[in-house]
Design a protein around this nucleic acid. Sequence first.
DNA 1: GACGGATGTCATCATGCGTGGACATCATCT
DNA 2: AGATGATGTCCACGCATGATGACATCCGTC
Lengths: 181, 181
Amino acid sequence: MTAPRRRDAGRSRALLLTAATDLFAERGFDRTTVRDIGERAGVDPALIARYYGGKAQLYLAALRAEKGEEPPEDLLAPGRLGGLLDRLARRGPGPIFQAAARPHDDPAVRDAARAQLEVRLVGPLEERFTRAGVDRPRLRAELAVAAFAGVVLGRDAGAFEALAAADPGELAALVTEMLRP
Amino acid sequence: MTAPRRRDAGRSRALLLTAATDLFAERGFDRTTVRDIGERAGVDPALIARYYGGKAQLYLAALRAEKGEEPPEDLLAPGRLGGLLDRLARRGPGPIFQAAARPHDDPAVRDAARAQLEVRLVGPLEERFTRAGVDRPRLRAELAVAAFAGVVLGRDAGAFEALAAADPGELAALVTEMLRP
DNA sequence: GACGGATGTCATCATGCGTGGACATCATCT
DNA sequence: AGATGATGTCCACGCATGATGACATCCGTC
C-alpha cells in the first residue's frame, strides 16, 4: 500500500480548490483573500500563484469545477427550486448568483461567470418557456433568473428578516408562484 | 450681488456629497474610492475626512440625502415601477438595492441601509398587501423587493442581455405581473 | 493693514492585498 | 549514498486605499 505522501502537489491543489470554492461562495471574489484561502486549506497561499497562476484563475477553476455538480435542470422543474434554495442556504449564494448581480472587473472572469449563468440557469429556463409557447421566452427567462438571484442574495445579505427566517418549503412555493409566467 | 467666494466650505461639502451619491449609486461603496469622489467633485479628498469624518460617514450622509427625493409610494402603485426602472437605468442601481443583495462590513452602514430599504420599499409594500388582505404580507413584501432588486442589479450587471435591452414599458409590465401576489 | 480663524493643499503613514523569488526540505532514481 | 527535480516555506516588494497632520492661503473683523 502507498503510504500517504507528506508532499503531494495534487492534494495541495485540490485542497486549495475546495477551500476557494467554499470561500468564494460565501463571501464572493472581492472579499476573499488568498491568505484566507490558504489558511482554510492548510496550504501556503503562495502555492495559489504557483499552481493556478493567480487568484483570478483559481476562481475560474472553481467555477468550472462546480459545473458538473448538478444536472442543469431548469428552475421550474418540480423540486428543483426547493433543493436549490436549501443548498444555497447552507453553502452561500455561490459565485454564479453573485455574478448575476454585480459585474466583475476582470473580463475573463466576467465572461466565464456569464457563461455559467447561461448554461445552468437561463438556458434551461428559456427552453422550458419556449416549449410551453410562452411569449418572449428569452426575456422572461432572464427576468426570472435575475429575480431569483435577488431572492437568494437578499436572503443571505441579512437585509430581509422574514425572508431569511421563512420555511424553505413555503418559500419555494411562493417563489415558484412568482416565477411562473 | 455677492461675488462667488473662492473658498466656501458649504459648497465643497455639497460637491462632495453629490459626487459621492453618484459614484456610490454607480459602483457601490467598495468600488468607490475617496480619490474618485474628490476628483469628480473637484475637491481635495482630504476634505472628506474633515467634513464628514470619513468615507463611511459620507456614505451615510448620501443615503440620508436621497431620502426625501421621492415620496415612499409602494412598488405596485401605478406608474411607480416604470418610473423607478427608468431612473435606475440612468443613475445606476443606487446604494439601497446594492445593500439588499450584499451586506456591508460596517454595522452602522449596514443598519442605515437596511432602514432605508424598510422605509422606502418593504414597508409600503407590506402595507399594501395588508390592506389587500394578502396572506403573509411581510414575507411577500420582502420577497417582492428582493426579487426586484435582483432585476435592477442584474440589468446593470451586464449579465442579462435581453433584460438590459428590453423596452422599459414592457419590462415594467412583466415585473408588475411577476410581483403581484 | 494686521490678526486669527476658516479653508484648501500636500506629503506621508498604516494597512491589507496579490505576487514573485530566494531558499529549504523532501522524494525518487541511479 | 548522492544527485536532482519536485514541493513547501518564508520574506519582501509594489500597489492601492483610507486616514492624518503639517503647512499654506484666504477672508472677515477690528
